[in-house]
Design a protein around this nucleic acid. Sequence first.
DNA 1: CCGTATCCGATTTGATACTG
DNA 2: CAGTATCAAATCGGATACGG
Lengths: 136, 136
Amino acid sequence: MSDTHTGVPSVLAFDLPRPVPVDDLDACPVGDLFRRLGDKWSMLVLILLGSRPHRYNELHRAIAGISQRMLTRTVRALEADGLVRREVLPTVPPSVEYSLTPLGQTLLEPLSALADWAVRHGAEISEARSQRAKSA
Amino acid sequence: MSDTHTGVPSVLAFDLPRPVPVDDLDACPVGDLFRRLGDKWSMLVLILLGSRPHRYNELHRAIAGISQRMLTRTVRALEADGLVRREVLPTVPPSVEYSLTPLGQTLLEPLSALADWAVRHGAEISEARSQRAKSA
DNA sequence: CCGTATCCGATTTGATACTG
DNA sequence: CAGTATCAAATCGGATACGG
């Protein structure tokens, strides 16, 4: 079943004479992953959950710009992908706790590398955008 | 101007007593970066350009599923962000060459870390999704 | 060859209101 | 507290046609 990319060591093997197998884009796990995490909130939730488990409204308050609808959708998608675990606690007012699965924790590492880059170079991007606007 | 996040060492400082500054999400370079790269093609173009400079139709053929409109939009956005450089060569039929800026090259590193994760764990995500569908 | 312009449909996101 | 439902808007993405 998973023959398609089983033997692929890395899509970023720049030394290859041929470019990346972009024809198989839809089947490519890289593009796939990015499209899942590429939405507005997934990565933020992952990062938040990486620090400690959170309850629903805890996440809601922490992100603060997200709607209930999107928070639910995001967290459910992450759960379906096996990155987040959802646990309903049998308390009197029902509580739901979200946490990272082991798989989700491993994702946190490369994610942090990218986030770190963004923090370090974010200003340069903003600057580039501003200068572009001026030169127009 | 750039006081907002100048002093921030890393958004992923899990040891902090407080969560990430998600209130400033729009100003947060992490969410911002992901929203730019989160589209269908940006990352692919970046990866392609990371291997070597490409001309317009070279990119078009390499990606093969992309429309002219989207290729232009993608490459222009990347250029505006200071990640890609666009150079018009004074050839008889006009040629345009796209390449990574130094900034774009530094981004390639954390990007490859994430891509590597995707290749390694992509199957686990697909599996998680399948199992979810069955248990429904 | 290298784009831009326009139109169109599909997907995503958000505001609001309501429920167990 | 933890969601779900519905509606409307914005954005995304592609096909096609045209211009420098």
